[in-house]
């Protein structure tokens, strides 16, 4: 009886060790997938956030927060669910940032002597490094077109901005956009269509 019991305990130990190694392998795969996913969306997510809040540092903070939140709360979910979840978190961060900015601007309205952008940022040596990006003249042209696009998008109602950014710029399908925006697919189609119409009216002549 005792021998049988110790044999059974050994069997349980083997099963536990196997389960643990399977869990570790699965976790490593999930980590690789998550890294690949985030690398694929981080830059466009930053641009979308920057367009919405019109501030580089705030946009970086928003993207960082969204990445961390996705990793901690939804990292174990199937990877096909990540994109709409990530953008939902991102837009929650954008809205929070916009609310904070409103409060801050009201608060600093009472103290006109204070600087609003005095956030104590440390000088980053990368600021002084020459950029190995595209040709400067091309960048100027692209930059001007982007500025016009940003201004036109900023003038849209908030929900139209979201629908346009997710559908057109990020390339999400209607279902994922609806999940990210927390609304119906019909609403997504309506917001997106109106956004495109308005942008066409505002940018059509220039483009």
């Amino acid at each position: 009886m005792e021998g049988f019991a110790s044999l059974s305990i050994d069997a349980v130990r083997v099963v536990a060790a196997d389960t643990r190694s399977v869990a570790v392998e699965s976790s490593l795969q999930q980590t690789t997938d998550l890294n690949r996913f985030l690398a694929g969306v981080e830059r466009s997510a930053f641009r979308i956030a920057e367009m919405a809040v019109r501030d580089r540092d705030d946009a970086l903070d928003i993207v960082q927060g969204a990445m961390l939140r996705l990793a901690r709360s939804y990292g174990a979910r199937p990877s096909e669910e990540w994109k709409p979840l990530f953008y939902r978190i991102l837009y929650n961060g954008i809205r929070d940032s916009q609310r904070r900015r409103k409060v801050r601007s009201r608060l600093f309205g009472f103290f006109p002597g204070q600087r609003q952008d005095d956030d104590g940022d440390v000088d980053d040596p990368l600021d002084r490094v020459a950029d190995a990006g595209p040709d400067p003249s091309q960048r100027v042209i692209a930059g001007e077109a982007m500025q016009r696009l940003e201004a036109a998008v900023a003038a849209l109602p908030a929900r139209q901005q979201e629908a346009f950014a997710l559908r057109c710029l990020e390339g999400l399908d209607v279902a994922d956009t609806a999940t990210a925006m927390g609304c119906s697919e019909g609403s997504v189609k309506t917001h997106y269509f109106r956004a495109l119409q308005t942008l066409r009216e505002r940018l059509g002549e220039v483009w």
Partner: peptide, 28 residues
Amino acid sequence: VFDASVESLDARTRSRLSRSRHEAVEAA
């Protein structure tokens, strides 16, 4: 236009995004 602006992100921003990503993956 959007894709071009994403491609032309400066080194500092790309670096900061990479760091954020690594922190997130470590957190996961």
